[in-house]
């Protein structure tokens, strides 16, 4: 899932400073789980903005809406009526959701109320950890199920570096050293032979250095005829 956290309230207030009608739009998927942009957080942010507005004579009109998933057009269309007439929409979905709303409603001002951070998972209540680097060429089969791209501070493929100390990363003693974890995982699995081989320089073409990536599933792509029929429905 995507992990995000809310921007500081003062920053959000600054972003919408000169607006009057403001919609806070949440998402019930990933950001609800990481307690950043779900139904509950929409309520708290909207109420905070109202208090701020009252206190500073901003006369903001704050309204609220939540959709199942802001990253899918089908769901986003539900919020069309709420966006009507708004000066700005504070999306507290991830950066993906905010952009999909912007694409569907190009005349509306969509701003993000969250800082989208990473692809990760809840570790324990209130703690969320990054897991996947989205490099486009997965190596988990070589690394005992632990991603060195996201979880090693140097994204090393032949770690650990000399800064691995007591199983912790030199960059942050709170962070486990990914290569220490990889070594122990491969040892447990009886596959230490994997770590003895040098992993050659990585092909980063499938990663993000070539601009936005596009994945096509040919069998799901609509033919022009199908599109026409669909467009008729929409």
């Amino acid at each position: 899932m995507i992990i995000a956290e809310q921007k500081p309230l003062t920053e959000i207030c600054r972003i919408v400073e000169n607006d009057h009608k403001i919609l806070v739009a949440g998402c019930k998927s990933c950001v609800a789980i990481c307690l950043a942009g779900g139904e509950k957080e929409v309520g708290i942010l909207a109420e905070s903005l109202r208090l701020y507005s009252d206190l500073n004579n901003k006369e903001w009109e704050i309204s609220e809406v939540v959709v199942e998933r802001q990253c899918e057009k089908e769901w986003v269309r539900e919020i069309g009526p709420s966006i009507e007439g708004k000066d700005s929409v504070v999306s507290i979905a991830c950066g993906v959701g905010a952009q999909v709303v912007q694409e569907l409603y190009p005349d509306a001002r969509i701003v993000s109320g969250l800082n989208t951070s990473n692809m990760g998972a809840p570790d324990e209540p209130g703690i969320f950890l990054e897991k996947c680097g989205g490099c486009g060429d997965c190596v988990l089969h070589l690394t005992g199920g632990i991603c060195p791209i996201a979880r090693c501070a140097k994204s090393m493929l032949n770690g650990p570096c000399g800064g691995s100390q007591n199983g912790k990363c030199e960059v942050n003693p709170d962070t486990p050293c990914a290569w220490d974890q990889i070594y122990n995982s491969l040892k447990r699995l009886g596959r230490l032979n994997l770590i003895e081989k040098v992993i050659p320089p990585k092909n980063w073409i499938p990663s993000s250095s070539g601009g936005p990536r596009k994945i096509v599933r040919a069998e799901a792509v609509l033919t022009p005829e199908e599109k026409k029929t669909k467009e008729g429905v929409d």
Binding site: K154, L157, N158, C161, V198, I199, P201, K202
Partner: peptide
Amino acid sequence: YDIDSIQELQI
């Protein structure tokens, strides 16, 4: 960190 030290040696 395009490559690591071991890959640098290899190259």
